[in-house]
């Protein structure tokens, strides 16, 4: 069960051309979501090495959201398939390291998908809040 008062941090991995502008758009519209979500932008979600995700969990994050380009990716037509492969590899890596793979989520966030983005962050935030920290205090 979750530790009382546990405030998880979420790492959002965005993409320079599509989802990061979408996250900006949420900000411009003052669409609220938990401030616990930190953002790091990549050129394209296909660049994300699965180890980066494991590294995030080891760096204090309790949840990771890949804000992918989906079909809008300016670089790669098959970006969703490629990113899915990275995520599947990451799931396997997390399992092997005893981390609940449900802490990692991916969603296509378009450049104007502000509400969708806020919804995904809130939902992951609530889910990992229930799960508690990756390494419980004192473990």
């Amino acid at each position: 069960m979750a530790a009382a008062g546990f405030e998880p941090r979420i790492l959002v991995l965005s993409t320079n051309a599509i989802s990061d502008p979408g996250i900006d758009y949420a900000g411009s519209g003052h669409v609220h979501y938990p401030a616990a979500a930190r953002v790091l932008r990549f050129p394209c979600s296909s660049m994300i090495r699965p180890e980066f995700i494991l590294h995030a969990f080891r760096s204090g994050f309790s949840g990771v959201l890949i804000a992918a380009d989906g079909g809008d990716c300016p670089y790669l037509r098959d970006c969703p398939e490629r990113t899915s492969r990275r995520i599947n590899d990451a799931y396997a890596l997390l399992k092997a390291n005893g981390i609940d793979p449900s802490r990692l989520r991916m969603s296509g966030i378009c450049s104007v998908c502000s509400e969708a983005f806020a919804k995904h962050v809130k939902s992951l935030y609530e889910a990992v809040q229930k799960l508690g920290p990756v390494v419980p205090p004192g473990a």
Binding site: I23, D24, Y25, A26, G27, S28, H30, V31, H32, Y33, A35, V39, A118
Partner: peptide, 11 residues
């Protein structure tokens, strides 16, 4: 701004 002050003006 877009990713701190504006979306978290409530916090």
């Amino acid at each position: 701004r877009e990713q701190s002050s504006w979306p978290h003006s409530d916090d």
